[in-house]
Amino acid sequence: MTATVTVGEFSRLTHLSVKTLHHYHEIGLLAPVSVDASSGYRRYGTDQVDTALLIRRLRLLRMPLADVRAVVEASDGPAREETLRAHLERMERELAQTREVVTSLRELLTPGRPVIDVQYRFIPPFRAYGVSGHVARDDIGPWCGYAFGKLNTVGAGIHATAGATYSDEFFTEDAGRVVAFLPVAPDQAPADGVELVDLPGGYFAVAVHAGPMTDFDCTYGALGSHVAEYCEVAPGPIRELYPIGPGDVPDPADYLTEVCWPIQRIPVLKG
């Protein structure tokens, strides 16, 4: 089943900012399925998520837009693979770290990708130590290192799963409010350098991302598509929980991240 979503929601599904999506529409690279004649509002289909993720991955590899278009519009495998091969050879000479993105791209192009396992969960309200900031997407890695470093320092001895909330603007504008948090007891005393924040309870659709963050946007795309097709989206930021993160294990292949998408209620799915 395919649903249509607003450009803002499609931005959250694909990690492409609204500005970028508008540009891709203007140049004919990724057009919405409909544009309201009076308001100009764009809507995208969830069946466009994979194409958007493919474009995003190619642009992460700094592939020129003309080559991206050739890959997206290629009607046969060999033509697509030839364009990819030429660019990947150039990138491998420049940056060794692009190999992870290359692997992710090839997996994205592989047919028969597994269906995401989505669970529904009610998370009660809770209090947490928090570190907040207006963070650019490109700076999220260093910022999280700083924020969770502070939380780990003041939260020594607290056994709880840390996480973070991400505002809509973080996705749609490539920068927005992020709150890193570590749950604490309701009567927890304040600590220097962190806030005491109260996170509201609510229903969430939850998917687990296993391994490094190279393919993290694929989990977002699959979970967001599921929510758009089967659930009613609730207002509020997306949450990420980090049962196993960089501070727990040395190998990114062992990371476990839970993406929690706010929904109005648990849907009744008919089999």
Rank of each mutant, 00 (worst) to 15 (best):
T2P: 03
F10T: 04
H15C: 05
T20Y: 03
T20N: 14
T20V: 09
G28F: 03
L29D: 13
L30H: 10
V35R: 13
V35I: 14
D36W: 02
G45R: 07
G45Y: 11
T46I: 08
T51C: 00
L54K: 08
I55H: 11
I55T: 01
R62E: 14
V68K: 11
V71T: 10
V72F: 10
E73R: 12
E73T: 13
A74D: 00
D76N: 12
D76Q: 06
G77A: 13
P78A: 13
E82G: 01
H87P: 01
E89M: 10
E89T: 11
E100F: 08
V101N: 03
L105S: 06
I116L: 13
I116V: 15
F122R: 07
F122W: 04
F122N: 02
F122L: 12
F126P: 00
Y129K: 07
S132C: 07
S132D: 06
H134Q: 14
V135R: 10
A136Y: 10
R137N: 04
I140M: 11
V154D: 02
G157V: 11
I158W: 10
H159L: 09
A162F: 01
A162M: 15
A164K: 04
T165W: 14
T165H: 11
E169C: 01
T172P: 01
E173P: 00
V178D: 12
L182S: 02
V184L: 09
D187K: 07
D187Q: 15
G193H: 09
G193E: 04
V194L: 00
V194C: 03
D198T: 11
P200Y: 08
G201S: 11
V208F: 10
G211N: 03
T219R: 08
A222S: 06
S225I: 03
V227P: 02
E229N: 01
Y230K: 11
Y230F: 14
C231K: 00
E232W: 00
V233G: 09
R239Q: 07
L241H: 08
I244C: 06
G247D: 12
D251R: 11
P252N: 09
P262V: 00
I263Q: 10
I263K: 06
